[in-house]
Amino acid sequence: MTDRKKIAAIVTTYFENSHADLIVSKFLKGFPNGSDLIEPKVDIVSLYMDQVHSDDIGLELAKKNGIDVYPSIRGCLTLKHPSPGHWPTSPSWEEGSLAVDGVLIIAEHGDYSGNERQRRMYPRRFLFEQVCGVISTSGKTIPVFNDKHLSYDWNDALWMYQRANFLNIPFMAGSSLPLVNRDPVLEHPVGTDIEESLVLGYFNSYLYGLDSYGFHGLEAMQCMVERRKGGETGIAAVQCIEGYDIWENGSKGYWPRELANEAERIVRNKESGEMENNCKNPALFILEYVDGFRAYTLMLDAHIKEFAYAARVAGHMESTSFNTHEMDHPFSYLCQNIQEMFITGTPQYPVERTLLITGALEALMESKYKGHIRIETPHLNISYKPYNTPPVLPFTVD
């Protein structure tokens, strides 16, 4: 049907259970909804892959669905294959013009270098910059979704945000975690008097595991606390603590152990015993917000395989767990929200959330690298308002 939106998919690599598979494949096959599939209302019409995995499934899926695979992002957005001869000065070269209605950028997974701060350097800015190049010369704008955080580098992340604003690009980013089932259902009303909060999360203890999973822990926190009284004001300082010092500081009241115990109570997927005995090198993220609010993300390298949130609200504790067990389920709701932005041209939730936690994660990994020092973050003085109209969620918000 000619009135369906045409979407370009820009991915780093495409193998089974990669983020490209968990997102792009759903736009091809349908969005899981229990035992059924919800038929997508938009069409993937082009694909660019930065790297071809040894167990690649993207090329075959593209062929099966009649999708052209392009050697460049320019081609993927203009639907123009490069001409023979000298690129791009051949007499037969056609630059092309913007020919799609939306872009998926999925730069998660792939063979990319890490740096000394244990951060995997996925080329998110480069991919986005190439997309913006085509948009900027087209005379029109289209929505863009960027999977997970904006960049490993704050300057690149800020550039992406500012470039999107300059070009009036409807821009949405982040992961599936804020969109999964919560048990029990908890969505703070806007303006809730949250006194302090903690997210209990996990990470796989490979070299770059804290970088990858730490984003999820921060995002689980931010999607809840951005709804606090006064709205989001930004983050003034952060600190990362690791190992035994976490438990020692907890016993001294430096962070709210009772909130960690409450979050642990509602986690289903956990080992027997105590978290301090089961974990070898956990990490604690301490967040000091501009308005004086404090939040904590306790990332465990064992003991649990789940994320949970606990907060003190008006003198009592509220808590919920994030159900990420069924891999298809959370990505289904992420895809439905991306699709809604492609159709309406309006992001489902503020990209400033992702910008803020992108910067917080960079500063926290810097704190870890520099011996767990407290780092002030005046550049994260980022204010924004949370959504009032809920995005597509697997639960009902009163």
Rank of each mutant, 00 (worst) to 15 (best):
I246G: 05
C240K: 08
N249V: 02
V267P: 09
Q239N: 04
N249G: 15
W255I: 12
N281S: 06
S251D: 05
L287D: 00
N261C: 06
R268Y: 11
S272A: 09
E258L: 14
K280P: 00
N269M: 10
E264L: 13
A260R: 08
V267H: 06
A283R: 11
E248F: 14
W247Y: 15
I286L: 06
E258A: 14
G253W: 08
Y289D: 00
A263H: 10
C279F: 04
I246R: 11
R268W: 13
W255Y: 12
N249P: 02
R257V: 11
E262I: 07
K252D: 08
W255Q: 10
W255P: 06
Y244W: 13
P256H: 10
A283K: 12
N278D: 03
L284P: 04
N277K: 13
L287W: 04
A263F: 08
F285D: 00
E248T: 13
K252V: 02
E274P: 01
N277D: 11
A283T: 04
G253S: 11
N277G: 14
E274N: 07
F285T: 03
L259Q: 05
A263N: 08
V267T: 13
L284A: 09
G253N: 13
I266Y: 09
E288L: 03
N278M: 12
I246D: 03
Y289T: 00
E274W: 14
N261D: 15
R265C: 03
E248H: 15
I246W: 13
Y244I: 13
C279I: 01
A283V: 05
E242G: 06
Y254M: 15
N281L: 11
N281Q: 11
Y254E: 14
E274C: 00
A263K: 12
G253T: 05
A263I: 05
M275D: 06
N281A: 05
K270E: 05
G243P: 04
G243D: 08
I286F: 03
L284T: 04
D245I: 06
E242S: 12
V238Q: 04
L259H: 10
S272Q: 06
S272P: 01
Y244V: 14
I266V: 10
K280T: 07
W247M: 11
D245R: 14
P282T: 02
N261V: 10
E288G: 01
I241F: 09
P282C: 08
A260I: 02
G250K: 06
L287M: 02
Y289A: 01
V238S: 02
W247C: 06
L284R: 07
E258H: 15
V238W: 08
E276R: 09
A283D: 03
G250A: 14
I286G: 01
W255D: 02
N249T: 07
E264D: 09
L284D: 03
E288I: 00
I266T: 10
I246V: 09
E248Y: 15
N278V: 05
N261I: 04
E288S: 06
A283E: 07
I286T: 03
W247L: 15
A263W: 10
Y289P: 00
G250W: 05
K252I: 07
W255F: 14
V267D: 07
G250H: 08
N269P: 00
L259A: 09
S251V: 01
N261K: 15
P282L: 09
S251R: 08
